[in-house]
């Protein structure tokens, strides 16, 4: 898994590429920790090829942490099997999911 951080308009975007699983959980946690004061973080899953149950757990945990700190966490770009797995776990109930970063920003600004 590769993780890159960039700024886009008023949000911090974390681009994740490759397999997001138990073996790569620490990289994800470290990336989230690095921008722990950012009011709006967008997780861009366009390049994610696989997610397992540990990744789902980390997303749920991040969602809880953002909620308790009154910060916004959004998810964009999930495709194919990854999208199916996220849907099965109902991640969208915890992390608002959008088609694009602009859509996530528009919703956050509304």
């Amino acid at each position: 898994m590769q993780i890159a951080h960039r700024s886009y308009r008023t949000a911090d975007v974390i681009d994740i590429t490759g397999q997001f699983n138990f073996g790569t959980r620490k990289e994800f946690s470290a990336a989230i920790e690095k921008i722990k004061t950012s009011p709006h973080v967008i997780l861009n899953f366009k390049g994610v090829t696989f997610v397992d149950s540990a990744a789902i757990g980390l997303l749920a945990l991040a969602a809880q942490q953002f909620k308790s700190a009154n910060r916004t966490l959004s998810l964009v770009g999930a495709q194919g099997t990854v999208k199916q797995v996220l849907n099965l776990a109902h991640i969208e109930q915890m992390i608002p999911t959008f088609a694009s970063e602009d859509a996530a920003l528009s919703k956050a600004a509304a």
Binding site: R25, S53, A54, I56, G57, L58, A60, L61, Q64
Partner: peptide, 10 residues
């Protein structure tokens, strides 16, 4: 509940 390291059950 979800643990601090993100472990959970289905």
């Amino acid at each position: 509940p979800l643990t601090e390291d993100g472990s959970y059950f289905t």
